[in-house]
Amino acid sequence: MTLRIHFTGEDLARTHIAPQPDVLWETMLSLYRLRRREQTLVFGEWKKTALGRVPGSVRMLTTLVPVRGYTVDFLTPRAEPGSVAGGMEALRRTTGERLRGDMAELLARHPGKRLPGWAERLAAGCPDALDALVGAVDGYFHACLSPYWPHVRAQVDRERARRARLLSAGGWEAVFSTLHPSARWSFPVLELSYPADHDIHLGGRGLLLQPSFFCRQTPITLRDPHLPPILVYPIEHDLDWARGQAPDRRTTLTGLLGATRTRVLETLAEGDCTTTELARRLGVPPSTASRQATTLREAGLVNSHRLGQAVLHTITDLGVAVLGGRWSGLIA
């Protein structure tokens, strides 16, 4: 199954990377993580805490966000970046036509699903039902996501900075080809693995690339191709994020990795480097820099992406956690 996004030259000029995490997308995607038995290493600690905080009104959301399959598009309207209040206001402005259409699609995509009375009122565009839904989204966000939001934002900020560096060094080809392991970019089409075959023709509207903390496995987009185009894709994670701290292992790091590899990791913590730049900063031959970066990549501490004739090396979240202490604060 493949998602195909069709570009024109005009679309490339109007494509950009979201400046902050999207409150509504993270709210919706975190509901998947909360109810699915997956990614316990990354989300296990958060799930243990969040499950004890879930308000009763979350049942409204789980009706609209099934564990698998179609979720209503209207839950993730385009809103002011990173603003909780802006997201709630955008949701409150959902039109009756959009509510009716998406609720009908929900029933069609999930045969046999029965809707509670409030959902029928929502589909009919009743303001009180929409107000109750906005309250449920707001209550869930503040109970289960708000305590972790500074870290979510820091992780997404870091991913955006990485994408900006890739764009500067290698253009959109470098950005698109490294979005996801399944990404295949050959102008004018970007292809990615997806739960179903789906085509989006941008038609000059451009594309918003939205890094997401709670997105996992494959990127995701809206079902309706006429809505403002967006591609939500997963970022890398600090494995200790839910505890709010990274392990401090700096005192034994040299003994574990060796002096040169430790210097490589610390240098990449200060900023991405090509092999040539890395060798120059360390004062070693390029072959040595390449060999040490390869070893760190095999250990999951570094990512490497080819940009034309060069290779760009980036420290991973695990690499930051291994460095510990001041480095996690510096990069976040």
Rank of each mutant, 00 (worst) to 15 (best):
M1V: 15
R4Y: 10
H6I: 11
L12E: 15
P21E: 10
D22G: 10
E26S: 09
T27S: 12
L29N: 04
L29R: 08
L34I: 12
L34Q: 08
Q39Y: 09
T40E: 10
V42M: 04
F43M: 09
E45V: 10
W46E: 02
K47V: 13
K48Q: 13
R53Y: 06
R53M: 09
G56F: 05
V58G: 01
T63P: 04
L64T: 05
V65R: 06
R68E: 15
Y70N: 07
T71M: 12
F74Y: 03
F74R: 01
V84S: 11
A85F: 08
G86S: 15
E89G: 03
G101S: 07
D102Y: 02
L106G: 01
L107I: 08
H110G: 09
P111H: 12
K113R: 15
K113W: 06
R114D: 02
P116S: 00
G117S: 14
R121A: 14
A129G: 09
L130Y: 06
A136L: 06
D138M: 03
S146I: 06
S146P: 05
P147V: 14
P147G: 14
V156K: 07
D157Y: 14
D157E: 15
E159S: 10
R162P: 05
L166W: 09
A169R: 03
W172G: 13
E173P: 02
E173K: 08
A174G: 02
F176K: 08
H180K: 06
A183Y: 08
A183M: 08
R184F: 07
V189S: 10
E191V: 04
L192S: 07
Y194H: 15
P195L: 15
H201E: 11
P211Y: 08
P211D: 10
F214Y: 13
L222Y: 06
L227W: 00
P229T: 04
L231R: 12
L231G: 11
V232F: 07
P234T: 10
I235W: 10
I235N: 12
I235L: 13
D238A: 15
L239G: 03
G244I: 09
R250Q: 05
L256I: 07
L257H: 13
L257Q: 12
A259H: 06
T262D: 10
T262C: 14
R263I: 02
T267M: 06
A269W: 07
E270M: 11
D272M: 07
T274A: 00
T276M: 00
E277W: 00
T288G: 08
R297A: 12
G300D: 01
L301R: 04
L301W: 11
N303M: 01
G308V: 00
Q309C: 00
A310W: 00
T316P: 06
T316S: 13
V320Q: 08
V320H: 07
V322Q: 01
G329E: 13
